[in-house]
């Protein structure tokens, strides 16, 4: 009875014949078959890389069409890769990446929340103008300003240090400001007013009311920022010049240099390792990422 009702409700003719049910089952199987196979095709390059990193490096291309070589699974690529380049081990590159990503993220999250509160809650002259500037900053690609930024930081003597990579992040990051503005606008204004009547200043409202309420969007900001900084290799390419200061993203590129011996096993092993932090964040924090993308409508 319940089933029949459901069919009527969905606007279908009541048809409980076995033919109808078979058709539905076939449709469902075809749907899952198609979606599942396509998902595997999408993931295949990554799966292939991970499995290749576990093969002896001489076998990787001879047996590329095969995922697992029975009895030949080895971790030697990880050992070889971890030795790194020119006496600098990969642990140094990982440490550098963590320092850069963490310091940038802390700054970006704090400053973006502060700026977002100003845009979302304050009435001041010229707000529209600065908000448009923020949108421009969000859209403007780094590639456009990298040359003059290099010249600027070169004049200041900062090239070769982490300052050019970290400091700009401490002044608000366009996308994260936008994300937080959207979130703060969703908080009822009555809360601010109630606090104000109780004698709370705008700064107090920000610290005691807004901050605790926007924790989800702060987490989302932190995730995005960390992932972007972790993957960012352009600024390292331009602003850093000593191997001992390189982050993982840039160190991986050294595997591709013509002068480097082509140890593809080691390259895949280190590539796999470099994706682990991103992958872990993705698996554990997927909900925040999806919400962040959906609520701003902008790429992630």
């Amino acid at each position: 009875m319940a089933r029949q009702k459901q069919f009527e409700y969905e606007g279908h003719y009541v048809d409980r014949t076995s033919k109808y049910r078979i058709k539905q089952t076939v449709l469902r199987v075809v749907y899952h078959l198609f979606t599942f196979v396509l998902a595997i095709v999408m993931l295949y390059p990554i799966i292939w890389m991970v499995f290749s990193s576990l093969k002896p490096t001489t076998e990787i291309f001879k047996t590329a069409a095969q995922l697992i070589l029975p009895g030949q699974t080895t971790f030697e690529n990880y050992v070889n890769g971890f030795r790194g380049f020119a006496g600098t081990s990969f642990s140094v590159f990982f440490k550098n990446s963590f320092i850069i990503s963490a310091l940038s993220t802390i700054g970006a999250v704090i400053s973006s929340a502060v700026v977002a509160y100003g845009f979302a809650r304050m009435n001041f002259k010229g707000k529209g103008f600065w908000f448009s500037c923020m949108l421009v900053a969000m859209m403007l690609p780094f590639q456009i300003i990298m040359i003059p930024q290099y010249l600027l930081f070169n004049t200041l003597g900062w090239v070769g240090t982490y300052l050019p990579l970290i400091l700009p992040q401490w002044f608000g990051q366009g996308f994260l400001i936008f994300l937080n503005v959207q979130f703060i606008r969703g908080i009822p204004y009555d809360l601010d007013e109630a606090a104000m009547i109780d004698g709370c200043s705008v700064y107090g409202i920000f610290l005691r009311i807004i901050i605790p309420l926007i924790v989800p969007s702060l987490v989302t900001s932190a995730i995005f920022s960390f992932m972007w900084r972790w993957d960012d290799f352009m600024s390292a390419l331009i602003f850093l010049n000593k191997p001992i200061t390189y982050p993982v993203a840039y160190a991986l590129k050294l595997f591709a240099d013509p002068s480097a011996s082509s140890d593809y096993g080691a390259m895949f092993a280190m590539s796999t390792l470099s994706l682990i932090p991103i992958f872990t964040i993705f698996l554990t924090m997927q909900r925040y990422l999806v919400e962040g993308i959906a609520s701003t409508g902008i790429k992630g």
Partner: peptide
């Protein structure tokens, strides 16, 4: 469906790691 979560993650993952040097080398 029961697999929706998996599908969404599988199709989304490449764009999460796609910008990395690791994927470019691969």
């Amino acid at each position: 469906t029961k697999l929706s979560g998996f599908y969404r993650a599988a199709y989304y993952l490449p764009s999460v790691i796609g910008a990395s040097v690791a994927v470019a080398l691969l």
